[in-house]
Structures are given as C-alpha cells and as structure tokens.
Design a binder for these strands. Sequence first.
DNA 1: ACGTTAAACTTTAACGTTGCACCACTTGGC
DNA 2: GCCAAGTGGTGCAACGTTAAAGTTTAACGT
Lengths: 345, 345
Amino acid sequence: MRKEGKSTRTTIKDIARECGVSLSTVSLVLNNNPRISQATREKVLESIERHQYQPNAFASSLASRSSHVLSVVVPHLNHVFADVYFGEIVSGIYEHATELGYKVLLDVANHRFVSSREFIRVMKSRRADGVLFIGSSMYDDYLMELEHSGYPFVLINHYFPNRGINYVMADYNQSASLAADHLLGLGHKNIGILAGTTTHTAIAFREQFIRACKINGLSPDHINWADGWFTEQGGYEGAEWLLSKNPSITAIMAGNDKMAIGAMRALAKRGLKVPDDISVIGMDDIPPAQFTNPGLTTIRHDLYRLGALGVEGALSIFKKQTSSFQEILPVSLVERESTGPARSR
Amino acid sequence: MRKEGKSTRTTIKDIARECGVSLSTVSLVLNNNPRISQATREKVLESIERHQYQPNAFASSLASRSSHVLSVVVPHLNHVFADVYFGEIVSGIYEHATELGYKVLLDVANHRFVSSREFIRVMKSRRADGVLFIGSSMYDDYLMELEHSGYPFVLINHYFPNRGINYVMADYNQSASLAADHLLGLGHKNIGILAGTTTHTAIAFREQFIRACKINGLSPDHINWADGWFTEQGGYEGAEWLLSKNPSITAIMAGNDKMAIGAMRALAKRGLKVPDDISVIGMDDIPPAQFTNPGLTTIRHDLYRLGALGVEGALSIFKKQTSSFQEILPVSLVERESTGPARSR
DNA sequence: ACGTTAAACTTTAACGTTGCACCACTTGGC
DNA sequence: GCCAAGTGGTGCAACGTTAAAGTTTAACGT
C-alpha cells in the first residue's frame, strides 16, 4: 500500500484506490454531493473514517478558489487582543464563523499592513474569503480604496458617512439619547463628557448627547468634554481634567466603559464617592462593568452580536447574495449603582 | 495573452513572462534566495511591485508543505476571546508569530474539536505548522494522544507532571512563596484562598502556598480555601463562602486576578474596606488590575512573554531544531493598595 | 587547451484537490 | 424502435506554487 517507508500522508487517491472509485467520486462524497448513491457514499465514508483521512485544506482551497477563512483586523494597539471590547466582538465573529464552517485568522492594522496594502493582499491572495475591520478610525482612509473593490469586507461598529462602505454598528444616536435622558432624569445639570474622537460614531454620539442636553434646557456652559482616547488611562486623566476645569460637575458620561472605569479610579483617588458625590455612566456594557465598585451603569451594545452579524454580512457579499450591507442595532440602558440623584457640591 | 475578458489574477507566470525569466526564478526571488543576481532580482521585484502581485498562499503552502500558520486553541468558555488572561497570551503569540512571518488562526477546544480529533487534523491537514494550547485543564487527557506524535504543539501556562509534553509556564512555586511571604510579612494569620482546581499548576500553587504558610507557623485551621473557578463570579461567591465559614479572615489570596476582582466586589457589597478590614492579593497582573478600586496587589506573570515563548517553542520543534521544549518563567510581586497590615476584626 | 568549479539560471515533476465535460446505462413515452 | 431525460458515475485539466535536478556560461588554475 502507501506506507513503504515514505511517510506520506493519506490522500484522496488512497481512498479512491481502496474503494475502487475515481478521485472525483471521493471528492463528491466529501462535499456531500447528492449525485453519489448511498451505497458508494457509505463505502467511501467508511474508508475515510478508517484511515482518519483529512483532506488537505490548501489543495482544496487552491482548486476551489475559496478558503473558508475570514480575517479579522484589529487596530495596532499594545496587547490589543487583551482588550475586552475587541474580544467580545471577536468572540461573536468566531462563534458564528465556526457555525458556518469558517475559520478565523487574526490580523493587525499596523503600519506594514496598511502601507503595503496587505489588507488588499489578504483578499487577493485568497487567504481569506472576507475581512472584518474592528475599531478602525476615521483616519483610516485606506479603507476607501476598498469601497468599490467588490471585495467582501465590513466595518464593525464604525462607518463612513455618505460612503458605500459596509458596516454593522450599534445605534449611537439612541445611546446618546438614553444616556442623556437617564442623567437629566436624575437631576444632573452639570455634566462632564469623556469622549473618543477618532471615529465618526464617537463624534456623532457626543454631538447627539450634547444636543439632547440642550434641548432639555441645559446651558452649554455646564457641559464640558475631554478626549479620553477610549482607554482607562485616558478616562483617568480626562476625569481629572474635567474636575479641574469645573469642580462642580455631578455626572460624568463616558463614551465607553473603559474610560468610565478609568474615571472611577480617578474619582476614588480624589476621595469622591460614586454615586453619592458624582455619577458615572459608561457605554458598551463589557463584562467587567458588572464587577467594578460600584457596579457601572451603562448603555448596552451587543458587541457579540455585532461580530456575528459582521460575519453574516461579509459572507453574503462573498456569496454574491447581496452587494451592500449596512445594519444598525438597537441599544438599551443597564442601570447598576454608579448613577444616582444629583447632589450639588 | 491571459486577459481576454477572463478576470484571472496575476500569477507568477505573468511576472515570469514579462521579465523573460522562468517561473523558478521568480519563485526564488520571492523567497529571497541568494542564488539570484542583483540585476535579475531587481527586474523581477519591479515587475511584482508594478503589478501588485501577491503570491497565492495556498499554492505556496501546498507545494512547500508548510503553511506559515500557527493555531491557538483556547477552552470552550462563553465569549472566551473577551477574557483578558487569554487575550494577553494571544497578543504575545500574535506579535511574535508576525515577526517570524507567521499568521495565527483561532480554534476553540469545544466538544467537536476534541471528539472529532480535530486538533490532530489541524496538523494533519497542514492547516497549521504548530498548535498552541492555552488554558487547557488537567482533564484534557486527549492531549496525551499528541505526546509522542512528533507534532509541534505546546501548552501555555499549564503542564502535565511526568510527561514529555511541551510547555511554557510561569513559576507557580515562586508565586506561592512570594504571596505567602507578603501576606505573612504583613501579619496576617487568618487567610482565605480562592483557588482554581482544574489545572496541575493551580493545584501545585495552592499546595505550595499552604505549605509556605505552615512553615511560617500558621495553624491549618486558619487556612481555608474555596474553588473560585478562575472567574469573577466564582471569586465573588467563593469570597462570600470563605467569610461565612470564617468571618475573622484578614486576607484573601486569589489564584488569579479575575477571582480577586470578584472577591473585592463581594467584600464591597458586605461593607468591608480593602485593605483596612481585609487584604486581597491576586495573581497574573492583568491590565485591569491597575484600575480596580483600590489597585490590586498581585503577582506578575508575564503572560505576553509566555505567548511569545510558546511560538518560539512550537516553531523550533516544527523546524526540528529541538524535540522538546519546557520552560519556566520567573515571577514578581507587584504591590498596589489592596494589601495592608492585618487588623483583627 | 583542458578540465574543474561556481554562478545563474531553466526544466520538469510534483503538491492534493475540484470543476467541467463526458459517458454508459436505465427508464419511459409515443 | 428511437429519442429524451435522468442516474451515477469517470477522466482530465486546471489551480499557482516550490523542490530537485539539469543546463549554460564564465572564470580560473595548471
């Protein structure tokens, strides 16, 4: 048989020879083609099972021009995969992709990735059937190159206004309204905002929040904002800056939970009690938000589902079932203990 | 030529034809083989650049029998990629793999993965040149099947005693001693342990910690432990259980930071102040440990480096530079504010 | 002038699948 | 008795690369 010292792997040929059928037949069985009779199918499957035969993924991809792989691209941040926000989305991507028989490959949008146009190559080289971008920023104009490329890619929780670029994202307008209503309802009249500034969604969110406050009669003088870089450290520093600028603020609205967590640390260091002295509200509802002290009130974005939907979108474009994919998901308020009635200081 | 309406991609053939050289020459240039003259090399590279040519990864893998892909296998937990512990390790893996020209593929050790022996198939099908297992448990005896397989795989932060299975891990014995010395040095005589119970490392750690306490004169009656499942929720419940069993404990030692964070939340709910009423020490030093209130004292395990080293190991086995790889990394104490002098209650 | 060696390629045969075109046989309608 | 359609396959040429062995040319020592 095939094992005369040459430690070669079992291939489709071995199975075909043993079953006395052609290569094509084995291939058809492998791909569940109905044109093969039950009898033949069983004979082949038995042989496959017995040899623990595993088709070579590369040969298959090469011949079929489809890799059954999805690539997910995250920004070039330090230890980026340790970020819970990205992790939640990746989890959603992974699980949905797996259900559909897809593998997921990791990529980081670092300098090389961008300047060498590797994001295009990933698709050109057929290494992936589709690409999902998480956490891209509004300065990532390289993405525009892809707009009319027809390549299956989608942005997750981000978008470019007036562009035909595919995306799935949370409803940031609704988030802003929900947060504003909650804080205003508690009587807060002096609010600090910790915002991200590098995405269109974050900017739209901040503007919508401010608008909602004004509509409800808040004076613009009583709304300040600082850039919190979407990070704990940024939230920490931003909170300090807000307090130094206006010591009488009674609530901080953070554009994501990480900044909120950083802010709470800064408040604790200053000896301010949350929510007695000052309220804090976050956004995303990442899992750690349940285990802060006090528990963080936040706007829930279903990041996991966002990831799963992204997979859906990329694959339906790949399969030419649709040419455009733009979805917005509803959000909800999660009340925990970090917000309470305003109390002037 | 090749472009009569058929929208076929640029291949090595096109480059070769244009440059008037053979396929092999282009291939050799692509692989930086020194046997090609500078002049030819430049001509070929120029053409490659101009056409934005990207070699087909599958064809290359098929022909060379090497995928330049590493697979990382994480346990089948809910939203597992949102776990900071795994994320830190994955970050280390990703970055080191990238430096070495490797891609990383995600896998989860779910039921199908295990029962269908997919972990073997991943290597058999050559989808990956090596596999890194993170967070495997002592019950994952399927790993034994791989022991003598010669396949390049390594366990990260776990091991099986008396087995030739490759691993990289933190020095859990040193962790235990460091933690015990720290707590004992602060005068604690009544200690609760929040432990993991599903890995050999965690069990060895707990035993070593208890041993160190006893050597320093602590009575076994004053050392209790609860299983905290390595999670925040487990740490929360474990802490409550420990306090109900022995209300006078003055310190909690947690086998990872996540349990410590859960415990701190439980203590806060009970109205206990950390560290005034009770000290808490964790393990790992995951990034969020800096942003808890108060900051978490912990033992630092360099998870990122553990991941990078794992890549090193798997690849050196793949390249047959070594047949066995077992490394232990030193750890260190990081003092923040969650531990302080014992005060009896 | 001659053989030897090295440099710089080229030729050819894999690598392990899949898609397409084709074929042989059966069934059935008229 | 002949054609049409359906069933259950087969054979072969891709797919795009690399590895191994072979060829040509130039350089060099004796």
